[in-house]
């Protein structure tokens, strides 16, 4: 009950943020909401299926480049079309990648996803005419629900309609993921994570379930990647680089992969912590490295794990 109240309070706070918070802090909420969508998907793989991907920036990149390509080259500005296209392309690429990766677990799975991520990074870097190479591709302002909103100042657009659009996508993504993880499919994933041999003997197709989880998580990452694009305005290969994959794993660990909302909290804390630490000290990467080490050693359940120390470490 307390948990539900907290979630409701957080949702209400996010909803009223544009009315009470400074413009800059509202703008920071945009990458938070985009990453929250990505991390909900990543945690299906990480927290529920027990597979750590170090290549999910690949799918963020696919989402972001899909939006950039459609708006810049195809004159398609509808964000609904962009999100659907990003999700479809994410699934399309995830199918062969996932089919190969989910045959392996632990470090082998991580390394394979990293390798595919870097293949995509090299692709966007090298295919200059298609992707703009290191200079990237502009992500032009998308229309929302058929409304162009082109005349509106960009900042007003971002902290107004785009903010609430992102929030709606996040809420929808959260509800869908909640249904997924509480469905028989989600229960099977947890069984596979905890004891794959036993799951196999129970008749659960381990590889098939992992594959489905991989594709769903890729779709979430692609949708989140598409949401990341408009606030930046230009999509570039750093979005698909392995350090970006590392960042989202860090966010998941920070918030706690053992809880449904842990990664979402991780995204929020990461973004605001980065905002604060970057302005205070040039060696912010060192501080983030120390935080990561501290979490892994002292709080493997992440921030949400710290709040409920008495409960079992893995509660998904």
């Amino acid at each position: 009950m307390t948990g539900r109240l907290l979630v409701a309070a957080a949702a209400a706070a996010i909803a009223v943020a544009p009315l009470v918070a400074s413009t800059y802090h509202v703008l920071l909420m945009l990458p938070f909401m985009a990453y929250a969508v990505v991390l909900l998907g990543l945690n299906l793989l990480f927290g529920y299926a027990g597979l750590v991907s170090f290549g999910h920036a690949l799918f963020i990149g696919i989402g972001a480049y899909t939006g950039a390509f459609l708006t810049s080259h195809c004159k398609i500005r509808s964000l609904e079309v962009i999100l659907i296209a990003a999700a479809a392309l994410g699934a399309l690429v995830a199918a062969p990648v996932g089919a190969l990766c989910v045959r392996y677990v632990k470090i082998y799975f991580g390394m394979l996803t990293l390798a595919f991520g870097m293949v995509f990074h090299t692709f966007v870097l090298k295919f200059y005419r298609l992707t703009g190479g290191d200079e990237g591709t502009p992500f032009l302002r998308p229309s929302l629900l058929g409304r162009s909103l082109e005349a509106m100042p960009k900042i007003d657009y971002l902290v107004g309609p785009y903010y609430y659009y992102s929030l709606a996508v996040l809420v929808l993504a959260t509800l869908c993921m909640w249904r997924i993880v509480h469905s028989p499919f989600g229960l099977c994933l947890k069984t596979i994570r905890d004891n794959p041999a036993k799951a196999e003997t129970l008749g659960i197709g381990v590889t098939r379930y992992r594959f489905h989880a991989f594709v769903i998580s890729a779709v979430y990452a692609a949708v989140g990647g598409a949401l990341l694009g408009p606030p930046i305005g230009n999509v570039d290969p750093t979005l698909a680089y392995w350090t970006h994959s590392g960042n989202i794993v860090f966010m998941t660990l920070l918030g706690g992969f053992t809880s449904f909302f842990g990664p979402v909290v991780g995204a929020f804390v990461f973004i605001y912590l980065q905002h604060w630490v970057m302005s205070v000290v040039p060696y912010w990467r060192l501080i983030f490295g120390a935080i990561l080490a501290a979490i892994v050693i002292f709080a493997p359940g992440g921030l949400l794990g710290l709040l409920e120390p008495r409960r079992a470490a893995v509660r998904l």
């Binding site: 400074s22 800059y24 703008l27 990458p31 990341l228 930046i232 750093t238 970057m278 302005s279």
Partner: peptide, 20 residues
């Protein structure tokens, strides 16, 4: 002073300088 890093983060730092 803010750091220039990747486009995404630098855009955010730039907005901080002007808006915050």
């Amino acid at each position: 002073v803010e750091e220039e890093s990747n486009p995404k983060d630098t855009v955010e730092r730039y907005r901080k300088l002007v808006l915050q």
